[in-house]
Amino acid sequence: MDQIAPSSDLMSELLLGMRLRGIQYRRVYAGPSFGFAFKAQPGCAYFHFMATGTAKLVTEEGELQTLSAGNAVFLPQGSAHQIVSDPKASVQDIDHYDVVSLSETVCAVTASSCSAPHVIFFSGCMEFDLGGLQGLVPLMPELMMIDATSQRYLELMPILTAMEQEARAGRVGDAGILARLADVVMAVIVRGWVECGCGNSSAFVTALREPRLSRAILALHRQPGRDWTIAELAAESGLSRSVFAKRFQETIGVAPLRYAGELRMRIARTWLAYDRMPIERVAERLGYTSQAAFSRAYKRITGISPGSSRRA
């Protein structure tokens, strides 16, 4: 596949804003025949790493992907799927298996009567947050798969091995170590996907590789509290107002000022729900003249009040 040259600044902004929260891992041992079903988790993402053996991943649409030792899979939209020894194998929801807790965030699932399992894989489910760029998640593919043994991803194998060892050991502080290692793995997977052309997500490709458009998007993300106008964003891009507005709408799918408003609310949600920032401070940082004005805008765009986001 042809390589692309994405905007380095915008790519860095994407990766810096990426956060994984609420990670729960399973270490799965399976025999020669197995079938695990993973239900849809909207707002979350799945991650699987095949340590030993082979398996088939079956998407919700019935597409098959072969997983071999060293393969890692990322499902950014939390789509339903199965991991099976064979498409004809009987399948059971992964949540219905008996588990043994190894630590606060890691549990073990054993679906094999053999002393030595045929397959070992690690599975994670977590909230996937791209921060201000969260609107790009729907443009991502259902599944991203890489071969950690290939030349392109040589840096990943030591990290995945460290994750495997950490999950097995159950040492003090393993949750924090696993979370940080997972951050790096997901960032490398997303970057590799972008470098290889982002599959068929043409809008995402264009946003990242179009230097003029990416300058405006980067400006919005770096100064979300500024009261941007179409003329100012067009000037950032070096385009006329009409050409910029048309190109932005066609590429991103929303008008520039609507994107700016939704961006502010995505950032506000992170500050409220995770950073526990006071509502009045969020309003001030995002350029609103009053807390009331911010609250009205937040509820109009998100459907809930800022206070509800804090409580959630």
Rank of each mutant, 00 (worst) to 15 (best):
D2Y: 07
A5P: 01
S7C: 12
G31A: 09
A40Q: 15
Q41R: 11
E60W: 03
E61G: 06
L64Q: 14
T66R: 12
A72G: 07
A80E: 15
Q92E: 13
L102V: 15
C107D: 13
A108Q: 15
S113P: 11
V119H: 07
G135T: 05
G135N: 07
V137D: 00
M144G: 00
R152K: 15
L156H: 06
I159S: 02
I159K: 09
Q165K: 11
A167S: 14
R180P: 00
R180S: 12
L181S: 05
A182D: 07
V184P: 03
V190T: 08
R191F: 01
W193R: 01
V194C: 13
C196A: 13
G199Q: 07
F204D: 00
L208K: 02
L213H: 03
R215G: 00
T229Q: 13
L233F: 04
A234I: 13
A235F: 06
S237Y: 03
R241V: 09
V243P: 01
K246F: 09
R247K: 12
I252D: 02
E262N: 14
R276K: 11
P278N: 04
G287C: 06
G287R: 04
Y288D: 10
S290F: 10
F294Y: 01
I301M: 05
R311V: 06
A312W: 05
